[in-house]
Write a protein that binds this DNA or RNA. Structure first.
Lengths: 333, 333
DNA sequence: CGCCACGAATGAATCGTTTCAGTAGTGCCG
DNA sequence: CGGCACTACTGAAACGATTCATTCGTGGCG
């Protein structure tokens, strides 16, 4: 089909070993020979076959990254960070999307394992880590991304989501709010559950402050709008004076439906609002939204660093937890 | 390092050929033998080596998809469509991001070519198609995505952006608007330039209607906000009564700054607004935004179909152009 | 002049699969 | 009972690179 190293060697009048040397250690070859070989390569349009190389050298020079949702800015930023760090180590990152489906995650895991990637970064779906454990047992280095220290078996890099939830809650309390709704559900997503838990713990420590959890079906804009409609009357009546939305999409949807209704609610006068993730739309909203920021880029970079350590030394399992940071904007002050 | 088919064969007491048959055509093997081999596979934790397989069979079973921006919902939807269609043909899609950088695009092109992907879907950066032409000449099937018929050399699937621009403009004219600003710049991005051109052509056909082009630095929310601030006084004075934003991010930013200012402008009373792309945020804005929709999913699916045709028959170069569709919402009526 | 050292190039072995021509075994039929 | 057809399995060749022990040439030195 395509040109092989053998044909290049013939065209340049050298052996295959020499062509290989030109490609991989040019300074071990006489300059004139290098030139001759390069000319043949160009003339024939030779492109090395990565599969053959990988088969021989045993490494693929790439790592896999499985995220829950490519459309989520959080993960694309993590991916960007990972890519930058991997570039420096001459590794390429293969980005794949599980779409929060266990089946797709399994399929991707298998695909990457067959591909013999040098390591794997995974933001796992749900709590089913058995498949991952099996992969690790076969000797493939795996680092968990955006997934916390509860799984001591795995090296991981995560953000302290419970702390983030607490930060948001405490900020609302410090602003004098007395009755706070936590909006956004889906206990099956670990990160979200942690945020809610953190808020609830903070509530224990704040006597006289009421907290209630309002579940939503998903985590989208639309879910936020629907929650907003349900909440509006209770805000007007003074029953609720603050909302902590477990992600920014919900916060934005909520804000839109509160501001856009027939009898609008004022933010932050009638109700204070805090979101989570600090996506770019949060700061650009009509009333800019206070949010909890995660060091996305840093998460990606650190994940790759941990993976490199792990490839170097399979026992080097570290767990890194980043601190979230509250970014205060107009929606809560 | 890892378990090979040879060791599986030894453990099961059969030949390597038989193990291979169990994996690839199980019905050519006696059921008891299949069971024996499967047991050995499970017990040893054997995972086939994709590189070795690929080397032997010549095909990789995967196609590459290079997009301009993974963070852009348009491309993630296209990718999803491509993935679905590829799944049906038992191909896997490797998603990669050029980030609108020519250098990254080149690097990815090379990587995919070395990987011997069975085909390539590319949304090319700028007008530099020479590298791509070289790739095609070496026999790799390539389909252009979101890039029009101006490059007859390539099979492609695109949306008629000029038509989309005209649709938006004509809609504003039909609504009685007389002085229309086209907001959003960057002639170097082909698709954007086409939208502007389409609007300008429509303006020729509409005597008595004024058009002006207002460039922006980028295509982000922030660029839209800045444009909004600059435009607000000219809208209040009646100098401008409609805006066509070349993408939804700009439209949303514009709307936010117009609605949120100290002396707000009413949409659509003072100014009608049309965006482009119909991203989910457009319909969810405070005043839902009229926008031009592209059949994103369909684009991805069709691109893969064209690619499959091209793999089948290298001369089967087709060019598909989809019609954009105007979605009318409150911002313009 | 002979020998050695050293730089440059060679080419066979190897990686883990698939494929396919060939072998073995079994049952049936004339 | 010999031959045939058929199924199930075998094992070596091939894919395209890298690697490394070996060979070749040249120049320097004693």
């Amino acid at each position: 089909m395509s040109v092989s190293i053998r044909e290049v060697a013939a065209a340049a009048g050298v052996s295959v070993g020499t062509v290989s040397n030109v490609l991989n250690r040019p300074d071990a070859v006489r300059p004139e020979t290098v030139a001759k070989v390069r000319a043949a390569i160009r003339q024939l349009g030779y492109v090395p076959n990565a599969a053959a190389r990988q088969l021989r050298v045993g490494r693929s020079g790439s790592i896999g990254l499985i995220v829950l949702d490519v459309a989520n800015p959080f993960f694309t930023d993590v991916a960007r960070g990972a890519e930058r760090e991997a570039d420096a180590a001459h590794l390429s990152v293969m980005l794949a999307n599980s779409g929060e489906s266990v089946e797709r995650e399994d399929a991707l895991l298998q695909q990457f394992e067959r591909q013999r990637v040098d390591g794997l970064l995974v933001s796992p779906v749900g709590e089913h880590l058995d498949r991952l454990r099996a992969v690790v047992k076969r000797g493939l280095p795996v680092v968990l991304v955006d997934r916390g220290a509860d799984n001591q078996a795995f090296p991981s890099v995560a953000v302290d989501d419970a702390r983030g939830g607490a930060l948001a809650f405490e900020h609302l309390v410090a602003g004098g709010r007395k009755s706070i709704a936590v909006v956004g559900g889906q206990a099956r997503i670990h990160q979200i559950a942690e945020r809610v838990r953190g808020a609830q713990q903070a509530a224990f420590a704040a006597p006289g402050v009421g907290i209630q959890h309002i579940a939503t079906e998903g985590l989208s804009l639309e879910d936020g709008r629907m929650a907003g409609e349900a909440l509006a009357p209770r805000i007007r009546s003074g029953e609720i004076d603050a909302v902590f939305a477990v992600n920014d999409l919900i916060a934005i949807g909520l804000e839109q439906s509160l501001l856009g209704g027939t009898s609008p609610v004022s933010i932050p006068r009638d109700v204070a609002l805090v979101g989570y993730d600090d996506i770019s739309f949060a700061s650009a909203a009509v009333v800019p939204i206070t949010s909890v920021r995660q060091p996305r880029d840093e998460i990606g970079r650190t994940a790759v660093k941990l993976l490199l350590e792990l490839i170097e030394d399979p026992k080097a399992a570290r767990q890194v937890v980043f601190e979230p940071e509250l970014v205060v904007r107009a929606s809560s002050s």
